[in-house]
Structure formats: C-alpha cells, structure tokens
Design a protein around this nucleic acid. Structure first.
Lengths: 147, 147
DNA sequence: TTTATTGTATACCTTTTTGGTACAAATTTA
DNA sequence: TAAATTTGTACCAAAAAGGTATACAATAAA
C-alpha cells in the first residue's frame, strides 16, 4: 500500500525528540511524549543504537542521546535503518529475479519507472538532515505567527 | 515497508500491454504475457473495469481494451485504483486522528514532512500518462541501439 | 554492598494485509 | 446448443507488522 511502517514513523519521532535537547532522555519519557508503547520504543531504540544513530547510557540516570550532530543524521538513514533499503517495488530488490516483460533485455518499462522514482525519493530523503528539519520547523512556526 | 503491492505492479503491466495494441486481448493471454496468475489477473481486471480504465467485452471472442486513450490514463490513476489513495504515511489518511507531538496545533514536523513528500510523489505519478511512458520507452530503446 | 533504575536480548502472540483460489452464473459467438 | 469468455462472491493461506512477556545484565546512588 506504499506506506512507511508505524515503526519507521515512531523512530523518526524519537530521533526528533532527541534532537530537540542535548540532555539524556530515558526510554520511558521518550515513549510517552512521542505516544509510543513503551516496550515498542525500546525495540526501536535498540535498532537506532545498533545503527549508530543513538548512544545509550545505562544505570539509574541512564537514557539516550544522539550519537552524531543533527547535521549528520538524515531522514533516509533513520528510515532505512528501520525498514531496510528503500525500494519502492519488489523488482528493485537486491538479487530479485524477474522473468517478465523484457527484463532479460533490460527493457522492462515498469522496472525502469519504479527504479527512477525510487532513486528520486531516496535522493530527497537523504538531503534532509535533522538540522534541516529543525530549520523547516522554525520557518513554519515563524510563518504561522506572522499571519 | 514502503512498497507498492504486487497487485499494483501487475495492474500497471496489464494496462501497459493493453496500451501496446488496439485489439481486444483476453484475460488468459494478458496474464500469461505479463506473468501473472490467471485468476489474479481477473481480479485486477475487474477493478480496472470498475474504475473505468479498461472496457470489457463478454462472450467467446471477448476480452479487454483500454477504455480511454493512452494520453488520458495516468500511472497514478492505475495505482490508486488498486491501492486506494496514495498516502505515504498513516497520519495522512482521511479522518485519521493523531494525538501526538503538536498535531493539535498543526505543528507536527513528521506529519508535514510526510505530507510534502506524499504530495510530490502524487504530482510526479499523475504527470506520467501511458502515452508518456511509451515515449520514454521508445527513447530508451533508441538510446540503447545507438551505442 | 545492596537496591532501584535502566538497558539488552530473545521469543512469542495477535491482527492486518496481501496474494491467490474456488465455483457458479451470465454472456456472446460459432 | 456448445464452447469460450467475462462476472461476482466468497473464501483461504501465507506473510508482514505491531506489540507484549520474560528473563537478564549493567550502572549509579543510597
């Protein structure tokens, strides 16, 4: 149905919250303010940590922080970390063998169409860093207030 | 996982095949040349018919034809007919109520991000008609041969 | 050193989506 | 009438997604 998963959406929200403050935030608080089931948030946080987007600190004053500056984390990185490589259609997957409609000769129209779209989308998403997102947010709020 | 469904892909292939020839083509033949399970193709063809993209003719010499000229059928129309409205994320759906992160004030960054992306993608897909697709295909083949 | 708090890891369950099938009925042509 | 085709409804099975349970390990503060 061409949807991002809930999990990817949630991940983005968590990362966004972490980008809003420099301080360590614990999983429970993050989950609550983002509106995510606590256990599920932990699952996501683990993936973010393994992917090097987030760093964790254990113990009673523990929690999570961004592992890198906001200018070095792109939306695409977050989404792909959760969902895997961004391919808009099955036939674009690594190692996918398709025997239909001229693929043998590299002439499948459908394949090329999806391939182009997928590339464009990836390019767009990798151009948006958390820093950029914050800039947009600020600009949006400014515009709202000036009305 | 942000994938178009197999069904949408199949629908596009069927429509593409129909666009290649003016003649009536029966479901069996279409299914075979497109590499789709025969019964499944029928299911798709029914949707395409209800959606006014394809016209059908019953009886022993029956089959399917495009209901409109190729310049008046867009890729978006075909995809949305199968998958429903193109929303890249849940929170963009009609009537979806989201209580998270400033949506109340219309300030949810994530929502706006997905909203923008979704709109862009829709615009792109609705700009591509079957006619345009054929043009691209011809251009592609021309380039291939000139090498 | 104990205890509370937090993260880590694995396995499991439930629901939804997706892909595909069965079968009977209706329609047209030969 | 017989054969070939579309039509329509209902159903089923596999996969993906979303979320939970349980047990365990690490850390910091009391």
């Amino acid at each position: 149905m061409l949807r991002f998963t809930q999990e990817a959406d949630d991940a983005l929200r968590i990362v966004w919250l972490l980008a809003q403050s420099e301080e360590v935030q614990d999983a429970g608080t993050l989950a609550q303010t983002a509106g995510i089931a606590p256990r599920f948030a932990l699952k996501i946080l683990r993936k973010l940590r393994e992917g090097g987007i987030v760093a964790s600190k254990k113990g009673s004053t523990g929690g999570y922080v961004l592992a890198r500056p906001t200018g070095e984390i792109t939306v695409l990185q977050v989404l792909e970390l959760i969902e895997g490589p961004l391919y808009i259609n099955r036939c674009l997957e690594e190692g996918y063998v398709c025997s239909r409609m001229g693929v043998q000769t590299g002439r499948c129209v459908v394949h090329r169409l999806f391939s182009d779209l997928s590339r464009q989308l990836s390019a767009q998403l990798s151009a948006i860093t958390l820093e950029e997102l914050a800039r947009r947010d600020a600009a949006y709020i400014r515009d709202q207030c000036s009305e």
